[in-house]
Amino acid sequence: MDINNETIIHHYFLSLITFIQQAKTVLKQLAQAQHDEAWVLAEQVSERKLEKNDVYLPDNLLSMGYANQAVDTTATHQWLQQLIPTLPETDQT
């Protein structure tokens, strides 16, 4: 089997285009999805302690505190809405 540089580059770009298409699909799905409250998303984070005394807080307060400081679902949704139209078209034809 004879593999030349042109074949390698061709396969590389096909892989890159596939990756971009998959990423664009995921971003579109995220933009269209219902967004949970920030504290619900914060519950998914394993390490939510931000301040030295956070070790004493119950999980629900820890989640709310983390969400208030680290999660902004509204801004993220707006950013996705602005980003998606700027993504490149990746037709392989």
Rank of each mutant, 00 (worst) to 15 (best):
His77Pro: 00
Pro88His: 08
Asp2Pro: 12
Gln21Gly: 08
Ala75Leu: 14
Ser15Ile: 04
Thr7Trp: 08
Ala67Arg: 05
Leu57Arg: 14
Asp36Glu: 13
Thr90Gln: 14
Asn4Arg: 08
Ala38Gln: 02
Asp59Tyr: 00
Asn60Trp: 10
Gln92Ile: 14
Asp2Arg: 09
Asn53Tyr: 06
Leu50Asp: 02
Gln34Val: 03
Trp79Phe: 13
His77Met: 10
Thr7Val: 11
Tyr56Val: 13
Asp54Met: 02
Thr18His: 15
Gln92Tyr: 10
Glu43Val: 01
Leu30Val: 02
Leu80Trp: 03
Leu80Tyr: 00
Thr76Val: 10
Phe13Pro: 00
Asp91Cys: 04
Lys24His: 14
Asn4Asp: 07
Leu62Asp: 00
His77Ala: 11
Trp79Tyr: 05
Leu16Ser: 03
Lys24Tyr: 02
Leu16Glu: 07
Pro85Ala: 04
Ile9Phe: 06
Gly65Met: 09
Glu47Gly: 13
Thr74Arg: 09
Glu37Ile: 02
Asp2Val: 10
Pro58Cys: 01
Lys49Trp: 00
Gln34His: 15
Asp59Cys: 08
Lys28Leu: 10
Leu62Ser: 04
Val26Gly: 02
Ile84Gly: 01
Gln21Ser: 07
Glu47Arg: 09
Lys52Pro: 12
Ser15Pro: 00
Met1Cys: 13
Gln29Arg: 15
His10Cys: 05
Tyr12Arg: 11
Asp36Lys: 08
Ala31Pro: 00
Asp54Tyr: 15
Pro88Ser: 03
Leu87Ser: 08
Leu83Asp: 03
Thr73Val: 15
Leu41Cys: 10
Gln81Lys: 15
Tyr56Arg: 15
Leu16Ile: 05
Asp91Phe: 04
Phe13Asp: 04
Pro58Trp: 03
Gln81His: 11
